[in-house]
Design a protein around this nucleic acid. Sequence first.
DNA 1: ACCTGAACACCGTTCAAGT
DNA 2: ACCTGAACACCGTTCAAGT
Lengths: 213, 213
Amino acid sequence: MARPPKITRLALQQVALALVDRSGLEALSMRAVAAELGTAPMTLYNYVSDREELLLLVVQAVVAEVKLPTGPFEHWCDEVKAIAHASWMAVRAHPYVIPLILTRRSRSPEVMRQAETLLRALAKSGRRGHDLLCAFRSVTSLVMGLAQAELAGPLALRAQESADDTIARFRSLPRDQFPWLIDIAGAALTSSPESEFHAAMDLLLSGLSQPEA
Amino acid sequence: MARPPKITRLALQQVALALVDRSGLEALSMRAVAAELGTAPMTLYNYVSDREELLLLVVQAVVAEVKLPTGPFEHWCDEVKAIAHASWMAVRAHPYVIPLILTRRSRSPEVMRQAETLLRALAKSGRRGHDLLCAFRSVTSLVMGLAQAELAGPLALRAQESADDTIARFRSLPRDQFPWLIDIAGAALTSSPESEFHAAMDLLLSGLSQPEA
DNA sequence: ACCTGAACACCGTTCAAGT
DNA sequence: ACCTGAACACCGTTCAAGT
């Protein structure tokens, strides 16, 4: 007498992601997910061999949310930037998952499709082999670094203080020791992650579109 | 009758870092560190208020290992690159700590000193305010992103396979679907983290030394 | 094929007690 | 001031048993 499965792998994935988004990484336990699904903890092991596999499911859920741009684009630079922006946005939408994404991104088939898309755009610059590899590494590292910096900075993992409080704290540093830190803390008041992403990306793209090293 | 303290905060810090370097992040528990020090678990709470504070100690130990370059430098670009390289090297020397560093770097006084040093070098480009902030974010994000990519890629968190195995797996992908992925996987065979760091950094620095956007 | 409870070996941390 | 053991509320996971 085969019973219909009580849950599905997809439900597992969605519940786990929702749990992390709501309560942070530390809240993501096998037992908590099981409770959320109304089953016994051990039931999950019918769908997932490990806690590690559950984490992978969460990462893949975020990766799947990347909406690759459709184009067409005038210059390959615009395409690279659009792809980078799409990844950045998806990752940023799930700040608590970022540490998981950074360490497990590569073990996902969908991320390989996205990588190939980015590489195709970068290859339009004429790069091949090692140069293409380095261009690829630069773009992906910058995107992930920016996403991470946003999480680690004002937001932090469990900071009590607001972003404005953090900036205020920086600005009240001894002026003779930290003049430039105080300068950018002031600039941060009227800045936004979006504007910083574009500025950083444009700096790199400017280097990428230079003819030679 | 005041007894001499059985351990010190410094010993705690060193033992914790050594433990993570040896056995990974998951092995870093209050109980394991206490055992390593030959004391009861609760003893640690005389030196640290929290597990979180222990993690912070580990991060600060790595941050303290950054050897800022002394100069002098011909161009500010060289100085920026040398500072970035110093951070990258220190972080890379402790791969298991990277997730901790990424999320807790900002809560360390020493890192502010290092940030100010980088900012001073970047300011020699003439940038101020928002432009300086974005230049700073670009460099630090790229450095941390590159360090993370190295950990997450071939090495992975607990990958069974070697870096060469990973590259071999990439190269045996369907050639019609992943031509560029296969191309850079081939290039990765003769590449090194060091050469990729320099190439990526040079791309960004090339953009940073452009006169205008 | 899928679900479950009991049990085991771990956690971080509180508390009350020791010196 | 510093150390400690017992206890509590959690973990992931194995195993044996149920349907």
